[in-house]
Design a protein around this nucleic acid. Sequence first.
DNA 1: CTGAAAGCGCTAACAC
DNA 2: GTGTTAGCGCTTTCAG
Lengths: 344, 344
Amino acid sequence: MTATIYDVAALAGVSIKSVSRVLNRGPNVSPKLQAKVLAAVETLDYRPNLSARSLAGASSYLIAAFVDAELTLEHWRSGRGNDYLSRLEYGALVECRKAGYHLMVELVDYGSPSLETWLLALLRSLKPDGVLLTPPNSDDPRVLDVLERNGTPFVRLGAEIDLDRGMRVFMDDRQAAADMTAHLIALGHRRIGFIAGPGSYAASRKRREGFEAAMARHGLEVDPGLVVEGDFTFDSGRRAGTAILGRPERPTAIFASNDDMALGVLNAAAALGVATPAALAVCGFDDTPSAMLSTPPLTTIRQPVAEMAAAATRLLLPPSAGQQGHAERVDYALIDRLSTRPPS
Amino acid sequence: MTATIYDVAALAGVSIKSVSRVLNRGPNVSPKLQAKVLAAVETLDYRPNLSARSLAGASSYLIAAFVDAELTLEHWRSGRGNDYLSRLEYGALVECRKAGYHLMVELVDYGSPSLETWLLALLRSLKPDGVLLTPPNSDDPRVLDVLERNGTPFVRLGAEIDLDRGMRVFMDDRQAAADMTAHLIALGHRRIGFIAGPGSYAASRKRREGFEAAMARHGLEVDPGLVVEGDFTFDSGRRAGTAILGRPERPTAIFASNDDMALGVLNAAAALGVATPAALAVCGFDDTPSAMLSTPPLTTIRQPVAEMAAAATRLLLPPSAGQQGHAERVDYALIDRLSTRPPS
DNA sequence: CTGAAAGCGCTAACAC
DNA sequence: GTGTTAGCGCTTTCAG
């Protein structure tokens, strides 16, 4: 009932191999033959069966995105959503679609002791043509090992270590944080509070470095009492904000390492009767959807997750497929909204 | 190099058919044989190849989620994120994983004139064991036609028309809106503003009906000047809020049909110097991540998207697979946060 | 209860 | 340029 390659070949009066060649842009196809095949494909509304292709050939037309199961489940359970994954998926999906590929998101248990075994089994059962690795797992040596051993091309998003392994797509977190800090300084702020992310995240460390570097470059001192470490959640931001605003000499601005924490600061300020942005400028990092929905809307760094995913996917797809060692930097943008203004 | 079913059979000293039977829980397997096979599978770290399974058998171990391409891309471009998709994926992914299935998200161009052709081709090339349909496309007759013609089981999320086609999972938007309205009334509110969603969405209409029904049941009049239609965006909520709050007799509460619009109302109130929740109670619908990150945090209805997706996925998976006509209702929850309190 | 053989629909060598 | 022929790794008849 469903048309197969044989039906197309029969209708076009050629061999199945010719049909295959036309469909796969193989060499040595006369225009006439191509036209006949294409016409037959059209009439029969034929589409090659993915499984058969994958089974017979080297390509599965499938890209897999490996996502940390625990982190992802925790995000979802807590109702915090998973904006990162959502954006990643858009970028990857759009590129896959253009090229006739499909995307499969796989939850990977990075905590499992049998991770390697499990991963290898997954790779063999799925045979993806390429794998997208998201942080913090872009830096997991076990994953890199398995992928390399299996010969599967992969792109690491925001990787920080072993930079010569696989392909990479990243943004400059350090410079972005420095830019944001410089932006506050240009506005006239001198006492600036900073809420860091967990030190276990490479991106957290980079952002903090950028903040400190920019302050130093402008000859400004970082008051240690104005730097607090949070864990990227709203609550930790609220607590950190409350602590910082409770100090005898208040800062005129607070830079939080991500948007959720910045929103927590906004909440803390409201609770303490500190007007934002009049009495306190607040800025974040990531440009999550909530950032533009807050009052006041948040000045932040737009992390181009979707673009990163799109670039990464293109690296995995032909014709650029699998350029070992290739690294690509994508640009961030400072989004200037209403939560930052000069100190009064 | 990669272990196949032959390797397992050889190691276990049985035929490949027996291995297949054990793996597929087929009938007539002696415990001894099963143990031998399982041991061999373990040692070889064997995992059946998905493509081969799909090609040979009736099952592809694949569930596809059809998502509106245009809507999704628009969400992405606007930076609004796509919380719905993210939650959907969570629910579906978790269930798929338990059952050894894989999830594939496909962007579908519902605006395309060749939609049917394209869909059919997709179904034939992927051969998914089931399809998850998201609104507003759960109600697209062309999609339902293709799916039915192709014999692919499908579940419609939040469908409103042709209720006898396929399987369905839904929540009671009308009752939820009525509950929220009753909640405001119980708090002491009498003049209540309402911001409706676009009339083209079935859910919008239901929510509005629920609001009106609850008001009527409590003998309260709906002031037409206090009901404005938005388009589910923050901006439309802000505009609607500004309009409502600009009226001579202000309401003491505003119920927005989704969270983004409710956040817009919060923003409008702040701009007009109207204190929330002291002078104005605000509530939303959906419980998006932003709802708990706002100041004040938003009272809202938690739409159990993940649970709906999980339930839908279970309906597609064995043993319950494809119970034509089956419909399942999932429960919402009224999340009472700080944006609503009695009128002062 | 278990095994042998026949494909599923395609790609890839290898001929012609 | 184009066609023939083997498989890819599994499930499914159909025998035993």
